[in-house]
Nucleic acid binder design. Structure first.
Ligand SMILES: [Mn+2]
Ligand SMILES: [Mn+2]
Ligand SMILES: [Zn+2]
Ligand SMILES: [Zn+2]
Lengths: 135, 135
DNA sequence: CTATAAATGAGAAGGGTTTTCATTTAATAT
DNA sequence: ATATTAAATGAAAACCCTTCTCATTTATAG
């Protein structure tokens, strides 16, 4: 029952929120833009406004239920937060997104931040390229 | 004479282009938004339109004279292209930008792209944090 | 000096996202 | 169940950064 997740986050249990969660759980792309979520809702026959989708996604982000990626120049994509940190490879042709984790890179980042006197709060690493399908 | 750089790039030598180059060369921040450049021009008494600033910066980027960073969600910043690849640390409080290079990370990125079958075209690595001044 | 292709400025338009505000709804207290 | 109240919603307007349009100006080649 994901109603609990919402209540835990101090959010009322509403149809838009339940449906957005449901979509994020069921999608196989895993990474969806607000527009993608909005269109999925329409396909399900749920008439939920785009503004609400943005609001809900932002609240989910604040609640730690969802992670937001800000892709180069353009729109954001959202994914269910699974607690396992990872970074992304993006295909510049088809927009496919793949995930990876690399402990060596993570460690080097910490070292660099330390060396520069920065208290690291976050980082973003995107590898752009052409995926196997698109070559 | 930076007129040569312009001609080499197939660009006419115009006052807006010379002035934008001059500003990028003289700034001590090294990383400037289009708005920053525009304001500097005004301070110099040059009435050059913001649209022209954007156009010129984009042309410089295409010509390899300037590099563009797309910072998280928001606006872009530009810097003179020095040919030496580097990544960035960004202070989330004061927006200070520092640079770093890390061969280990660069190599790991190549390995990850290869392993995932991606032809890497580019990458973006931003470390966010609180700089020494701001802690 | 002329011709011409390129560059400019001003403002409109664009795309993604956020805000506003009147209306509806979920949660809580009767 | 019902009334109360704070929160959530939808639709449209506003926003922000950036690009485009188009009439006018300018750099460059002949
Ligand atoms: Mn992911
Ligand atoms: Mn830099
Ligand atoms: Zn692809
Ligand atoms: Zn700082």
């Amino acid at each position: 029952m994901e109603s609990q997740d919402l209540r835990k986050a101090g959010l009322k249990v509403t149809l838009p929120r339940l449906k957005v969660l449901e979509i994020l759980e069921k999608t196989e792309q895993r990474h969806m833009s607000a527009e993608d979520v909005y269109k999925s809702l329409l396909e399900m026959g749920e008439e939920i406004g785009l503004a609400t989708v943005y609001r809900v996604l932002t609240q989910f982000e604040d609640a730690g239920l969802v992670a937001r990626l800000s892709i180069d120049g353009g729109h954001a994509v959202f994914e269910l937060e699974d607690g396992i940190h990872h970074d992304h490879l993006l295909c510049v042709r088809c927009n496919r997104i793949e995930e990876f984790t690399d402990d060596v890179i993570e460690e080097r980042q910490r070292a660099i931040a330390k060396q520069k006197g920065f208290q690291m709060t976050d980082h973003a690493l995107y590898i752009y390229g052409i995926c196997t399908e698109c070559q």
